[in-house]
Amino acid sequence: MKLNKRAIAGTMTSSDVMIEVIPWGKTSEINIKSDVEKQYGDQILDLINSILRENDVDNVCINVVDKGALDFTISARLKTALFRAAK
């Protein structure tokens, strides 16, 4: 998947996550801010990495502001942001 522009999906309400995807001219960078970072930070990072691999996305900067979203929410928001960025 080739990203053409910056895109955002999600909100910052409780139980949701807001994900910003920025095409990046260098090695990928993932920044996570989460209400449950201590408990689930690693798992969120693993999930994001696996979705990036599945969609063949590289050289991207991803900013995550998580308000306690469940995995399927994070996955849906990230995929939406990626598709928007690829338009």
Partner: peptide, 10 residues
């Protein structure tokens, strides 16, 4: 099942 197992607190 919904939230998965959290990392233990340090």
């Amino acid at each position: 099942k919904i939230v998965k197992k959290p990392n233990p607190i340090v």
